[in-house]
């Protein structure tokens, strides 16, 4: 034992010290139900620790609202560590707030300044109807994944490891696409409410790998066609890429476009039968 070891009591003291705090004003979209009329409500949120995440700040506000007998604000959240894609929110006009490459749950209050007014709106798209307040239904994404997000494999005995060689760069690119957490920020940020980044990511993580080749073109076609039943079209603004908490690249959209054209060419006999 040397004298340079920190005093454990001090360490504990540091942890409970709230640090810098800020007073913020929230303008929050309140809507009682899917068909109810919505409006912005203003709430004061004083003494918020800058170490809190955005959602923890909302928890604190909700705690107080509940004490005051006001209905707490409904918002989506689950893992609170940026992996599930459940959290959402347009914060000051940006999907998942001002920080790049993070979901709302990873956004910290230190990003804001004392005295800020923060405007919070739900993600908006026809395909993402509001359930209540800030919660939206993103089931349209499930429809797209259902439309093609699987591969055929030979079921039965377990295959040997590394039976199918995958080049490292390809595995990395597929992994980049697979990082999509299906949060919907790309749709929320897009001026056209297009879901091309999401769909391209979901198609690419299978389409790039050898295991995904057998249905590559059919998958692209059905996923895109389903996507277009719900969402807008891509004008290549690049807003999705900027909003994406996983920083998925719009390069995947170009790949999807190319595969879609090939699908229409390759499948044309099939199409003429089936419409």
């Amino acid at each position: 034992m040397t004298v340079t070891d920190p005093d454990p009591r001090e360490a504990t003291a540091a942890r409970t010290d709230p640090g810098r705090t800020l007073d913020v004003t929230l303008k929050v979209w309140r809507q009682a139900g899917p068909d109810a009329e919505g409006h912005f409500a203003t709430y004061e949120a004083p003494g918020i620790s800058e170490d809190m995440s955005f959602l923890e700040m909302l928890d604190v506000v909700n705690e107080r609202l509940a004490d005051e007998g006001v209905e707490p604000i409904s918002f989506d959240h689950d893992c609170r560590e940026g992996i599930c894609g459940t959290c959402s929110l347009m914060i000051n006009g940006q999907a998942h707030g001002p920080e790049r490459g993070t979901a709302t749950c990873q956004l910290h209050m230190r990003t804001f300044s004392d005295g800020d007014t923060i405007v919070i709106e739900p993600f908006r798209a026809t395909a993402f109807p509001i359930i209540k307040d800030l919660m939206v239904d993103r089931a349209a994404f499930d429809r797209i994944v259902e439309a093609g997000g699987y591969i055929t494999v030979a079921a039965g005995s377990a295959p040997d490891a590394n039976l199918i060689p995958v080049p490292k760069v390809v595995a990395d690119a597929a992994m980049d696409a697979a990082a999509c957490i299906a949060c919907g920020a790309c749709v929320a940020a897009c001026p056209n409410s297009a879901a091309n980044l999401f769909t391209a990511a979901k198609a690419a993580h299978l389409n790039l790998l050898p295991q995904g080749q057998s249905q590559r073109y059919q998958r692209t076609e059905t996923m895109v066609d389903t996507m277009e039943d719900f969402f807008g079209s891509c004008t290549n603004h690049g807003e999705c890429e900027a909003a994406c908490p996983k920083e998925i690249s719009i390069d995947f959209i170009a790949t999807m476009n190319k595969d879609y054209l090939r699908a229409k060419l390759k499948n044309r006999r099939y199409l003429s039968r089936n419409g």
Binding site: F40, N92, T126, F230, A243
Partner: peptide
């Protein structure tokens, strides 16, 4: 695809 528009100003990045 977005019949109800954002009610606050969208901040484009």
């Amino acid at each position: 695809a977005r019949t109800v528009r954002y009610q606050s100003r969208q901040d484009y990045a």
